[in-house]
């Protein structure tokens, strides 16, 4: 445990997490929009937006998977101290954090069951950049169509074909976040 473990959480958890949640909620409810979310300062390589997702949504009941370079001792310690979330393999994870390449292959993650489609993983994909351009998005939350710089389209098209099963995703970059629920219909730009 390093001194950094104890810092970087929300300064005022009830109101900071409330504001963070509204940004996260808005991002997922309106795919293609990019929100900023502040207040978390996690150890690298976790972005502050992904850190805010962790602080807002994780606790002892949410198994977490750290993929690839995100699986560091510093980050493990930080998550454990601030959220109490157990660290697990991809298949058991309710939440997973990592870069796109590290999260692949995506079929490792839970997609829910026909009776409980909510029991699916949420992927937090750390992006080098994030823009409202690129792949075309349609579906719930979108008036007409929207655009988002996705790391790839085929896996999201495949995920949509499983609906109402499937994983849900957030894309994070610095303090910015976008949501991509399984309901979104993705097409190449």
């Amino acid at each position: 445990m390093t001194p950094d473990t104890l810092t970087g959480g929300f300064a005022t958890p009830p109101t900071d997490s409330a504001r963070a949640f509204r940004a996260i909620l808005d991002a997922l409810a309106r795919p293609g929009t990019i929100r900023t979310v502040d207040g978390a300062e996690p150890p690298a390589p976790l972005s502050s937006a992904a850190g805010a997702v962790a602080l807002t949504l994780l606790d002892g009941t949410t198994p977490v998977h750290l993929a690839g370079d995100h699986d560091t001792q510093d980050l493990r310690d930080w998550l454990t101290f601030h959220t109490g979330a157990p660290l697990v393999a991809a298949a058991e994870a309710a939440f997973a954090f990592g870069t796109w390449d590290a999260l692949l292959p995506l079929d490792r993650f839970a997609i829910g069951t026909p009776e409980y489609p909510d029991r699916a993983a949420t992927l937090v994909i750390e992006m080098p950049n994030l823009h409202p351009e690129g792949a075309t998005l349609r579906g719930p939350g979108i008036k007409g169509s929207a655009y988002l710089s996705l790391p790839a389209t085929a896996p999201f098209i495949a995920n949509r074909s499983l609906f109402p099963l499937g994983f849900d995703a957030f894309l994070t970059c610095g303090n910015r976040i976008a949501g991509l629920p399984r309901s979104t219909i993705v097409r190449d730009a």
């Binding site: 997490s17 949640f21 996260i24 909620l25 997922l28 409810a29 807002t56 949504l57 994780l58 606790d59 009941t61 949410t62 489609p117 909510d118 699916a120 949420t122 719930p140 939350g141 609906f163 109402p164 849900d168 629920p181 399984r182 309901s183």
Partner: peptide, 13 residues
């Protein structure tokens, strides 16, 4: 947190 997670899954489906 528990309610917020449920809301997000509700939005997704």
């Amino acid at each position: 947190r528990m309610i917020r997670r449920a809301i997000l899954k509700g939005i997704a489906v």
